[in-house]
Amino acid sequence: MMEKELDTELKSDAKIFGFWIYLMTDLIVFAALFASFIVLRKSTFGGLPASEIFELPLALSETIILLVSSFTCAMGMLAIHQRQKKAALLWFALTFVLGIAFLFLEINEFAKFIHEGNGPGRSAFLSSFFTLVGTHGTHITVGLLWMVVEMFRISYRTLSAQNVSRIFRMVIFWHFLDFVWIFIFTTVYGMTHLI
């Protein structure tokens, strides 16, 4: 019964509604960055083309890690709905570890590119690549910080409707980043290899 009430409350929560609007605005920021990447992806200024710089297996493993993290995150939210704090903390901790792993791979990839002389200042193509993927990475960092904050909240505060709404917003933020990444994987890594 408790869960049901909470769910209806979440549906009418004005803050969650506003957060959805915010996510749409963030999506437009990404849309502008995607558009720039698509326009600039062939402007290599004599450098290596995308297909010779990017490594698909790495990008694929990043994708799998992020998709799994979305799953664990959803499980965490489920545990919150069932008022199981410990289980929720465990799922979110797992999500956090996966997020760190994703960031580690991404930073490694960036470092490798820069080391090979393909840094963001090399060409317009690489500027747009680093900016698009890096903006997503920054969002992931923010998401991880937020996750830590919410784990503290789960540990030390009660699961009031207000707090559950916060945790829910963190969770949809995480799913949103997953959603954006799918487009990065297909557009940045997939499309440059095929076309």
Binding site: L40, F45, P120, G121, R122, S123, S127
Partner: peptide, 18 residues
């Protein structure tokens, strides 16, 4: 700003900027 701070090339005249 990235063009100016990190010397990237989104809108520069050289390096393929548009």
């Amino acid at each position: 700003w990235l063009d100016r701070f990190f010397e990237m090339h989104f809108f520069t005249v050289s390096h393929g900027g548009n």
